[in-house]
Design a protein around this nucleic acid. Structure first.
Length: 486
RNA sequence: GCCGCCGUAGCUCAGUUGGCAGAGCAGCGGACUUUUAAUCCGAGGGUCGCAGGUUCGAAUCCUGCCGGCGGCACCA
């Protein structure tokens, strides 16, 4: 409430005052449109051959946010930023008049403006527009982040992503690249005969992954629903229905911990393909990732081109720890072998969890180059088909890059009676307190009883794929608005 | 959940042994017709995350809480 004058008022009040002054002088600070805008990138492309000092008579209309200002008085330079880049504007009093000059220089950094100007190459060799006319497109009532250091505070960058995007070009580029990844994924699958489908996010019963769900309530039906943890079971029902090749790209929700590779809601791609097995799926997976990578110009630390390394899970555990899980099929002998080698043994956990421990502690961190880890114990995989030649295993792989799981796939179990038995086993685990055990899904089993062709299916974590393709180490860097505490 | 580090102006950051709260950018007033983080002059701007405690005196030391990051645990 302090009175204006000089610096006694705060930054917001100053901007509000300017807003009111504009209105008082008949300027609409929030006009409705600005037609015919050219992306800054296109303006640059049109003048790539100019040399320092060259003038043109080519006019351009651009629009964006005012990002910097140099100079005052009779001539000044300003920087305008749009999605595609940054362009210097030159403001001259002999072009704009004293009044126009004052109005242009009276704008605040952060204001959105539209500009008509003529291209020229400055003495220092920077492409610029000599401003002939401009219009305020939206007044900014809050100060933008600092113009040199940008916005670096991690918490602010995530909570107020709009500030990150306006201040940091890398942030803009990253999310544009993410969009291109998703577009390339669709293009790849569409071209290979898959159709994109949408299945329920709100589900009466959840399933398809080992995870705890979020619950919500439907008022009119007066019943609980779950937010899906996977799309798997519905998609397989579409395979039963004869759609043959389907994929879904969308959010899954898992009510579990948050860390650098887990966000409670995340983007998952799943596809299912009739008459295929997990080897076919692996081949398509490595081809998809490699194709998407080259379509976005990936040049990171990994060689993503096919074929990826393949290693069986029992073999991977044996070479890392010397333990042969195929020879130790009861909990006690495996636990004994682990403690004999000085490895920590999770208490009160059964054989499957011990295997899981060995894989996540001793195998996964070593899988840096793209690798398919193949053939998992049946106990860990309630929806995967038994291995055609190795008892106790299923035809399943997880794909790893940089020590991080990016995909999980199997030859789908299509024997309804065995699926029923697997659900019974899950029910027993749930009874023993496993909060992630699969709930029994009778509708799914009945669908399998209609007859499902041999099918291969996969889930690929899109956020993690984007992490790999952009070299980011935290999932929060590739999700626009990651989950944060209040 | 446990451990460690961090939280100071709109933004980026200093702040010594516990002794008046600092700089740059941004903003405000002014000068400047080819700047590139423009420069120069002037005057402003603070819930030092929050709440307690110790002390003559706390941004600084102690406790608790909130938030962030990292690690562990959990988690396909």
């Amino acid at each position: 409430m302090a009175e204006p004058a000089d610096g006694a008022d705060d930054l917001l009040a100053t901007r509000r005052r300017k807003l009111e002054a504009l209105r008082a002088s008949g300027v609409d600070p929030f006009p409705h449109e600005f037609d015919g805008v050219e992306p800054i990138e296109a303006v640059r492309a049109a003048h790539s051959g100019l040399a320092a000092g060259d003038e043109t008579s080519v006019g351009h209309r651009v629009a964006g946010r005012l990002a910097a200002r140099r100079g005052q008085g009779k001539m000044a330079f300003l920087d305008l930023v749009d999605r595609s880049g940054r362009l210097q504007l030159q403001a001259r009093v002999d072009e704009l008049g004293v009044d126009g000059m004052d109005r242009l220089l009276g704008l605040d950094l952060g204001d959105l403006i539209g500009v008509d100007g003529v291209a020229f190459m400055s003495r220092r060799g920077e492409l610029s527009l000599r401003v002939q006319g401009f219009v305020l497109l939206a007044k900014s009532l809050r100060p933008p982040p600092e113009k040199h250091h940008g916005l670096t505070d991690v918490e602010t960058r995530f909570r107020r992503r709009e500030l990150d995007l306006m201040a940091n070009q890398e942030a803009r580029e990253l999310f544009i690249l993410r969009a291109r990844v998703i577009s390339a994924v669709r293009g790849f699958l569409d071209a290979e005969g898959f159709i994109e489908v949408e299945t329920p996010v709100l589900q009466p019963l959840y399933g398809g992954a080992a995870a705890r769900p979020f619950t919500t309530h439907h008022n009119a039906l007066d019943r609980e629903f779950y937010l899906r943890i996977a799309t798997e079971l519905y998609l397989k029902r579409l395979i039963v229905g004869g759609l043959e090749r389907v994929y879904e790209l969308g959010k899954d929700f898992r009510n579990e911990g948050v860390d650098s590779t887990h966000n409670p809601e995340f983007t998952m791609l799943e596809w299912y393909e009739a008459y295929a097995d997990y080897l076919d799926v692996a081949e398509r997976c490595e081809r998809l990732v490699s194709t998407v990578a080259s379509s976005i110009g990936y040049s990171g630390e990994f060689d993503l081109s096919p074929p990826w390394r393949r290693e069986t899970l029992p073999e991977a555990i044996r070479t890392r720890t010397g333990i042969d899980i195929m020879e130790m099929h009861d909990r006690d002998s495996l636990a004994g072998a682990m403690s004999a080698r000085g490895l920590s043994v999770p208490k009160d956990e059964g054989w499957p969890k011990l295997v899981d421990e060995l894989v996540s502690k001793h195998v996964e961190p070593t899988l840096l180059e793209p690798t398919f880890l193949m053939d998992y114990p049946v106990e860990l995989s309630p929806f995967a088909k038994r291995h055609r030649s190795v008892p106790g295993l299923v035809e399943r792989f997880e794909a790893y890059v940089g020590g991080m799981e990016i995909a999980n796939a199997f030859t789908e179990l299509n024997d309804p009676d065995e699926q029923r038995r697997r659900f019974e086993e899950q029910r027993a685990l749930a009874g023993a307190g496993d909060v992630e055990a699969q709930p029994y899904d009778e509708a799914f089993v009945e669908a399998l009883e209609q007859g499902m062709p041999p099918t291969g299916g996969i889930g690929i974590g899109i956020d993690r794929l984007v992490m790999v393709l952009t070299g980011r180490r935290s999932i929060r860097e590739v999700v626009l608005f990651p989950a944060m505490r209040d």
